[in-house]
Design a protein around this nucleic acid. Sequence first.
DNA 1: GCTTTATATTCCTTGACACGTATATACTCC
DNA 2: GGAGTATATACGTGTCAAGGAATATAAAGC
Lengths: 127, 127
Amino acid sequence: MESVFEIIAEPNRRAILSLLVSSQQSVGEIERQLRMPQPTVSKHLRVLREAGFVESTVDAQRRLYRLKPEPLQELDAWLAQFRRFWSAHVDALERHLDRMDPFTPAKGKTRKGRSGPNREGHKGETN
Amino acid sequence: MESVFEIIAEPNRRAILSLLVSSQQSVGEIERQLRMPQPTVSKHLRVLREAGFVESTVDAQRRLYRLKPEPLQELDAWLAQFRRFWSAHVDALERHLDRMDPFTPAKGKTRKGRSGPNREGHKGETN
DNA sequence: GCTTTATATTCCTTGACACGTATATACTCC
DNA sequence: GGAGTATATACGTGTCAAGGAATATAAAGC
């Protein structure tokens, strides 16, 4: 249970994070809004806390939990390497479609069959 | 094994994705570059393919795998909800530091003290 | 057709983790 | 100080996925 990625793999934890994005919440509030048993909430909060996703503040018997940005930024940083790719991909797709159908009325969808070669060295068919 | 998040929780799968971002690769090339057993590569590729992260192209006995953008964009979309938060957080942190240490030479910016109340209702100490 | 090369799949074992239930800790208020 | 409230932890259990080893599928070339 080390990496940022494993932490957010759990749906309940993602729900908690999404809930905390608006404002800090006590354990009880999370429990009620997400309709999950209190021990479950506490356990997930523990994981999130130890991974640096949240921090807690004591208010009498309550603990107020709020988000910390660093781990999510780390995730964002990992994702960054793919952004270049997918913008390039959109361009390539557009060129590809252009080649296939020069008469597409831009945003229209009346595409017809094609006959030209693939871009790049594709030698077979997509699975 | 449904969600995008569970898919990328696995380190080897992330390695494969990172490898494919530069260009498409055959199973053997992935196997050699990442130094993992071939069945492992094939199994992870299967997961990635079924989740839409990659697609494959047949080239004789080889299969060339390449990235598909959609699942990663979905991840990016989820992350988007937190971006607002963490830009706000940077501002808050700066105000906080201002308050704590008025004399920090902080990268050339002379910080001055302040006196206003905290934002939000913090009532205790951070753990 | 047989061998080599490339990839996929099956079977088995193991470990991690999420959950429920029960209990512990801690604070408040009367 | 005892009851009530809020949160954390411990323990036992079931599930599921990752890994290794062996094998299956399939294409290429001689």
